[in-house]
Amino acid sequence: MHSTITFPALALALSSNVFAAPLLQVRQNTLTTADTVQFVAKTIGSNPNATTFPDINNWLFQPVHSGAGTNLATLVDPSTASFNLSAPGYFQNGTDAPHSTGGYMVAGFIDSTAPYSLVLDVAHEANSSNPGAELGYVEMNIGLGTDGLNVPDGQLITSEYVTDTFYACPNVPVEGGSVIAIEVIDRYATPPEGCWSIELYAQCAGPITDSDRVAFPAFVQSSCYANATSAVVQ
């Protein structure tokens, strides 16, 4: 994620073509590690539908209750939500994941109740010509999860062998309203109609509690940005 252009190389590139487009370098905070992270969405491409989508770039990840023991992963406008990014967030547990890779993200304990884990509720895509096509929502489910997720270099990815893509999908119904929910698809699935492709970057947050450390001995520190809004989309 970090590329360095030395001055001689830059001078050579500019001298080789006087009509070359200006080089734009976006600074990003040095990656570090933190006990817990929050997630910031970065949009990919142009807005697919301005009538249903505000500018969701740099919106924040937040679970919203969608049923018994289940929360959809959603995006929330940080200007209208009282987020404290220095408070503890989600941390990575390195066990119980497919193919023995990655781990899953855990929300920790809430008033000594069971932990919530970030999992992928994927299923075969209906009417797909490819039987391996899968899609579904990212969820916060009560109890331990089994779907592998990882945060290498400060970016949330799945640890499956196929490359998955995250999307923000508007007007997803939940109890008493609708939300912009985060959906995941594999490389064989048809992109969800009317949704916006996103990436999720980790913002450093606070430490996990001693009780969480005892409950999750495979706890893994994750790379994160001091300011994830400065992350450069790959």
Rank of each mutant, 00 (worst) to 15 (best):
M1D: 15
H2C: 06
H2E: 10
T4H: 13
F7D: 09
F7E: 13
F7G: 11
P8G: 02
A9C: 00
A9W: 00
L12C: 05
L12S: 07
A13T: 14
A13M: 09
L14Y: 00
S15A: 08
S16G: 01
V18R: 14
A20D: 08
L24S: 10
V26W: 02
R27Y: 06
N29F: 02
T32I: 13
T33M: 15
D35C: 03
T36K: 07
T36Y: 04
K42P: 00
T43N: 06
N47A: 12
N47L: 06
A50H: 02
A50N: 01
A50I: 15
D55L: 03
D55P: 06
Q62F: 06
Q62A: 11
P63I: 13
V64L: 00
T70D: 03
L72F: 03
V76F: 03
D77K: 01
P78W: 05
S79T: 15
A81F: 10
S82Q: 07
F83P: 07
N84Q: 15
A87I: 12
P88F: 07
F91G: 08
A97E: 14
A97D: 14
A97Y: 01
S100Q: 14
S100E: 08
Y104D: 11
M105S: 05
D111C: 06
S112C: 14
S112L: 15
Y116P: 04
V119S: 09
L120A: 11
S129I: 05
G132D: 14
G132T: 09
L135P: 00
L135V: 11
G136C: 03
Y137L: 00
Y137F: 07
E139V: 11
I142L: 12
G145H: 02
G145Q: 03
T146V: 11
P152N: 10
L156Q: 05
Y161D: 15
Y167E: 01
Y167A: 12
A168Y: 04
A168M: 08
A168W: 07
A168C: 11
C169K: 04
P170Y: 02
P170F: 11
N171R: 08
V174C: 11
E175T: 14
E175L: 13
G176N: 10
G177T: 15
V184E: 03
I185M: 06
Y188G: 12
P192D: 15
E193Y: 02
C195G: 05
S197E: 10
L200H: 05
L200W: 01
G206W: 06
G206V: 01
P207E: 13
I208R: 00
D210I: 05
D212A: 14
V214P: 00
F216N: 11
F216V: 09
C224Q: 05
Y225R: 10
N227G: 00
A228Q: 01
A231Q: 00
V232Y: 12
V232H: 04
